[in-house]
């Protein structure tokens, strides 16, 4: 058996791994630093104790050549339902098999009384909700026996009940639950446009040491009679405004891995590779510019 590559995720751009690309990745072994897999796709069905299936067959082979991160979309951390133990058990089993460099989940909820909506639904930001999230993230980390990253979600509404700005909420959560952050720059931009705040203020409010990963994705701008909404569709190229924001993020959070997410209307792998190269180029340019700046100063 080929020895596995080290699990550490390098501070370069990776690509979200999708089933239609499994075989191409194994045939071409493209020059990309790492891949991120959606954890639930490798669980097998219905609360089995063993993970498995054709997706895991491919993931284990891809893991021999690349570091992987596991990105969950179904844990429903923000829900008031009891923490989903069978789900966590499946995740733990998958972690044991894959040895991911990073494990992440979302600041969102997706279930009520055991009924799942399988979506990343928005949370109000209050002290009460913060305490709830801190408990849930802490319990998850205890059960998994490792630190996780929490990702800021996109949203199309804000609750009147919210008393804390989103950026203060995510920072407080990371500090109090002792987790790290996965900053989705596209989600920051989508929310900034939808809810009228300065996306740079979000970035500047987050202490650099809390950020261990950045997400980049494409979104859709929808115009209605009542106004414009940005919808987080993950179905197209990263837009220029988000690339600019990524530049600002790289300048603030140096040496952090970035990930190109593309989930529907999936293009050929080559398009994702180009996006990853662009992310590396932006990061390299920012680093060089800062060096030049230091020389001049």
């Amino acid at each position: 058996m080929i020895p596995r590559i080290n699990s550490d995720i390098p501070a370069r751009a990776g690509i979200g791994l999708r089933a239609p690309h499994f075989e191409t990745v194994l045939e071409q072994l493209p020059d990309v630093a790492w891949f991120e897999a959606h954890s639930e796709n490798y669980f097998g069905l219905a609360h089995g104790d063993r993970v498995g299936g054709k997706p895991l067959y491919y993931l284990e082979r891809i893991r021999e050549h690349y570091p992987l991160s596991l990105h969950g979309v179904g844990l429903s951390l923000g829900s008031v339902d009891p923490l989903n133990r069978p789900h966590l058990k499946q995740l733990k089993n998958l972690i044991d098999v894959i040895e991911p460099g990073l494990v992440s989940e979302h600041l969102s909820w997706s279930s009520v009384n055991g009924r799942y909506f399988n979506d990343l639904l928005p949370m109000p930001y209050t002290e009460e909700v913060l305490a709830h999230m801190v408990n849930r993230v802490s319990a998850t980390q205890d059960l998994l026996g490792r630190q996780i990253l929490i990702e800021n979600a996109s949203s199309y509404l804000e609750f009147s009940a919210s008393t804390i700005p989103e950026w203060e909420f995510v920072v407080a959560l990371a500090q109090q639950a002792d987790c790290k952050l996965l900053l989705d720059v596209n989600n920051i931009y989508v929310n900034a446009m939808n809810h009228m705040f300065d996306p740079l203020l979000f970035l500047q409010s987050v202490p650099a040491e809390l950020v261990q990963e950045i997400h980049l994705a494409g979104h859709t701008t929808k115009t209605f009679e009542e106004g414009v909404l940005r919808i987080d569709t993950h179905d197209q190229l990263v837009c220029d405004a988000v690339w600019s924001l990524y530049g600002a993020a790289v300048s603030r959070f140096a040496d952090v891995p970035a990930l190109i997410e593309w989930d529907s209307n999936l293009p050929p792998l080559a398009v994702l590779l180009e996006e990853a190269q662009r992310a590396d180029a932006v990061a390299g340019f920012v680093a060089n510019a800062e060096e030049r700046h230091e020389h001049i100063a």
Partner: peptide, 21 residues
């Protein structure tokens, strides 16, 4: 429905925003 904040830049009704979800 949950009570939502009104955005100064648009006239979306709460129902419309929830309808996206």
């Amino acid at each position: 429905t949950p009570v939502l904040k009104q955005s100064p830049s648009s006239q979306f009704k709460d129902i419309q925003r929830l309808q996206i979800y």
